[in-house]
C-alpha cells in the first residue's frame, strides 16, 4: 500500500521534473522574444517583424517552398518505386531498403563535403537557386519516409489489389496511382509530415552551401536582432509541433487497424 503510494507520488514528481526541463527553454524563448533587451518591457515587435522583415519573409518562403518540393520529390520518387518493388521486383526489396536507410549512416555533413562536383552540374543545368537543395533534402528524408510508407504498404494486400485491377483491364500506371496509392495514403501523408518538419529545421546543408533558408537566417539575425531570431525559433518549433501532433492522430488511426 505504502509502496504504491510512494511510487505514484514519485512518478508525478519525476514527470514534473521532466516537464520543467523540456518546457523551460521554450518559455525562455517566448520571454526573450517578447522583451525589449535593456528596459525589460513587453513588446510584440519581434513577432511582428517575422512577417515584415524582407530577409525573414524571404527565408520563410524559401523554406516552405523547399518543404513543398521535397515532399513532391519524395512522393514521386519513392512511392512508385516502393510499389513497383513490392509488386514486380520483390528480390530488390533488400537493396531498396538498404539504400533508403543509408542516409542514417552517412551524415548530411559528409554528403555536403562530397557534393561540390555534383552541385556544379546542378547549378550549371538548372541555375543557382536555394530550391536546388530539394535534391539533397529528398535524400535526407528518405529513411523516415521509407519507414512510414513501408509500414502502410505491408499492411495491405497489394498483390491481390493489383491482380484485381489488372484483370479488369487496368494498366500499371493506373494500378500504382489509382489503386495502391490511395490505400497507403496515411503512410504517404505521415512521411510527408516528417519530411516537412525535417526540411524546415535543416541547417547543415543549407548553411554550408550558403543558401538562406529559415534556420540559416535565424542564425544570421541572432547577431543583430536576437529577439527576432528567438521569435522565429519558437514559431518554427511550434509549427513543427503542430504538424507532428496531426501526424500522431493519423498514426493512431492507422495503428487501430495495423499492428506491425
Amino acid at each position: 500500500m505504502i509502496g504504491a503510494w510512494v511510487w505514484r507520488v514519485s512518478r508525478w514528481l519525476l514527470l514534473l521534473a521532466f516537464a520543467a526541463f523540456f518546457l523551460l527553454p521554450l518559455v525562455a524563448l517566448l520571454d526573450f522574444s517578447t522583451t525589449i533587451p535593456r528596459t525589460g518591457e513587453r513588446t510584440g515587435a519581434a513577432w511582428q517583424s517575422l512577417l515584415e522583415d524582407p530577409q525573414m519573409t524571404q527565408a520563410i518562403k524559401t523554406s516552405l517552398l523547399l518543404a513543398l518540393f521535397t515532399v513532391i520529390g519524395m512522393v514521386v520518387l519513392l512511392v512508385p518505386t516502393m510499389i513497383w518493388v513490392k509488386l514486380r521486383v520483390p528480390r530488390a526489396s533488400r537493396l531498396v531498403e538498404f539504400l533508403c536507410l543509408l542516409p542514417l549512416t552517412i551524415p548530411a555533413l559528409v554528403v555536403v563535403v562530397g557534393i561540390k562536383n555534383v552541385y556544379a552540374w546542378v547549378t550549371y543545368l538548372i541555375g543557382d537557386s536555394a530550391l536546388t537543395l530539394t535534391f539533397i533534402y529528398v535524400v535526407l528524408v528518405l529513411p523516415y519516409a521509407y519507414r512510414s510508407i513501408d509500414a502502410a504498404l505491408s499492411s495491405i494486400d497489394a498483390g491481390t489489389l493489383s491482380e484485381a485491377a489488372r484483370s479488369l483491364g487496368a494498366g500499371w500506371f493506373t494500378v500504382i496511382t489509382r489503386v495502391i496509392t490511395p490505400n497507403i495514403w496515411p503512410g504517404v501523408l505521415g512521411g510527408a509530415f516528417i519530411s516537412v518538419a525535417l526540411v524546415l529545421g535543416e541547417y547543415t546543408v543549407s548553411s554550408l552551401l550558403n543558401y538562406e533558408t529559415l534556420p540559416v537566417v535565424i542564425v544570421l539575425l541572432s547577431k543583430s536582432d536576437a529577439p527576432q531570431s528567438m521569435a522565429a525559433s519558437l514559431a518554427s518549433i511550434l509549427f513543427a509541433a503542430a504538424l507532428l501532433v496531426v501526424l500522431s492522430f493519423l498514426d493512431r488511426r492507422r495503428r487501430t487497424t495495423v499492428r506491425k
Partner: peptide
C-alpha cells in the same frame, strides 16, 4: 508528440532555446 518535435526538428532552434 513533444519528443517527436525535439528529436527530429533541427538543432538550431534548440540551441537558441538554451541561449534564451
Amino acid at each position: 508528440s513533444i519528443c517527436g518535435v525535439l528529436a527530429q526538428f533541427g538543432g538550431v532552434t534548440l540551441a537558441f532555446a538554451w541561449i534564451a
